[in-house]
C-alpha cells in the first residue's frame, strides 16, 4: 500500500475508495467534500477530478475515518475550523456554528461546529531538498537573518519552512543549529502521539499544538533556541513576541500569508519590523499555473538579492 492510500486514500468513504485504488496521489493538493456534491480531487496543475456523490451519511463516515473515530478529541481544533491528521494533512471544516455571547449581547466566541457540510483535506507535502538553494541566501555577514517566508495560501510556505528547518538543524553529520518549532497546527512536524512524522533534522525540538505566542515564550525561556520557527504569523501577540525573541538573541524563521508581496509588507506589524531593522530576509514564494514554484529573496531595504 502506498503512502497516499495509507494516509488519506484509506480514510475516504468506502464508495469513493474503489475509484482511487490505483491513485498514487502525485501532485494532489486538496480533497474537497460537500454534502450533496461530488468529491473533488484538486491537483497542483489545476486538474480537478470529480468522483461519486457525498450524502450526509458519507460525510459522517469520512469524518469518522479522518478523526480515527474520535471527533471529540479534536473539539478545540474544530472550534477553530480545522484539525490536523497523521501525516500533517490539515482538515478544514464548514458547518453550523454555535456562538457564545459577549458581555454586550453580541455573538462572541465560537463554541462548536456541528452538522458539518464541507470538508477540505489539504495534503501535506514533504519535499526534502526544495529549500537547498534558498538556505544559503538567508545568511548575512555570517549570521542567519531573521526571515519570513511570504506567499499566497497553497503556494508551499509550510513545505519550504519545513525544509529550511531540516537543513539548518543539520543531518547528523554536520553540526546544525538548535531550533525550536512552535507547531500550533501540527502541520510542520505532523506530530502523531507527540512524535514528529516529518524529518526536521537532528537538533530540532517541537512544541506541538500550542498557541504560537505562548509557545514562543515557553521555548524562549526553557529551551535556549538559536532559532524559533513557526507557521502563519498573523496576530498582534505573535508579532509582539517576535521582538522578545530578537532582543534575546534568538533568530526567527516564520511564514506569513497574503495576496501579494506589497500587500504583506504593508501590514503594520511587518512594516514596523522592517523599519526597525529586525528582519533581514523576506522570501516571496510564487506558484505558476503549471504548479512550478519560484523564489525571490529580499533584504531589509526590500532590495532583491536573487
Amino acid at each position: 500500500m502506498g503512502r497516499f492510500m495509507e494516509q488519506i486514500g484509506g480514510k475516504l468513504p468506502l464508495q469513493i475508495r474503489q475509484y482511487i485504488a490505483e491513485e498514487d496521489g502525485l501532485g494532489l493538493e486538496e480533497i474537497r467534500a460537500r454534502v450533496g456534491q461530488s468529491m473533488e480531487f484538486c491537483y497542483g496543475n489545476g486538474e480537478v477530478k470529480r468522483l461519486g456523490k457525498i450524502g450526509k451519511s458519507e460525510m459522517e463516515e469520512f469524518l469518522n475515518y479522518l478523526s480515527g473515530y474520535s471527533l471529540y478529541a479534536y473539539e478545540e481544533e474544530i472550534r477553530q475550523g480545522f484539525f490536523t491528521i497523521e501525516g500533517g494533512h490539515r482538515v478544514g471544516l464548514t458547518g453550523h456554528t454555535s456562538c457564545g455571547m459577549d458581555g454586550k449581547g453580541n455573538l462572541g466566541q465560537i463554541l462548536n461546529v456541528r452538522d458539518i457540510n464541507g470538508v477540505n483535506v489539504r495534503v501535506a507535502h514533504e519535499h526534502k531538498g526544495c529549500a537547498a538553494k534558498l538556505v544559503p541566501k538567508l545568511w548575512k555577514d555570517g549570521i542567519l537573518g531573521n526571515t519570513l517566508i511570504l506567499a499566497r495560501p497553497g503556494a508551499g510556505k509550510t513545505t519550504y519552512l519545513r525544509d529550511c528547518i531540516r537543513i539548518l538543524s543539520g543531518n547528523g553529520q554536520e553540526e546544525g543549529m538548535k531550533i525550536c518549532v512552535v507547531d500550533e497546527r501540527s502541520e510542520i512536524a505532523a506530530s502523531s502521539q507527540g512524535v514528529p512524522q516529518n524529518d526536521l533534522g537532528t537538533r530540532t525540538d517541537v512544541l506541538d499544538n500550542c498557541p504560537k505566542s505562548q509557545g514562543m515564550r515557553m521555548v524562549l525561556r526553557s529551551m535556549s533556541p538559536q532559532i524559533i520557527a513557526m507557521d502563519e504569523l498573523g496576530g498582534e501577540e505573535d508579532f509582539e513576541m517576535l521582538y522578545q525573541i530578537i532582543y534575546s538573541g534568538s533568530r526567527i524563521l516564520g511564514t506569513v500569508h497574503g495576496d501579494s508581496l506589497l500587500d504583506i509588507v504593508q501590514k503594520p506589524y511587518i512594516q514596523n519590523l522592517l523599519q526597525e531593522g529586525m528582519l533581514q530576509r523576506l522570501v516571496w514564494l510564487q506558484k505558476n499555473e503549471q504548479g512550478e514554484r519560484s523564489i525571490r529573496v529580499f533584504d531589509e531595504r526590500l532590495e532583491e538579492i536573487c
Binding site: E60, N64, Y65, G68, Y69
Partner: peptide, 13 residues
Amino acid sequence: NLKSNTFSTGQKA
C-alpha cells in the same frame, strides 16, 4: 476493525 476503516461508525466496529 477500527484500523481497517471499513466500518462507517465506531459503534458498528
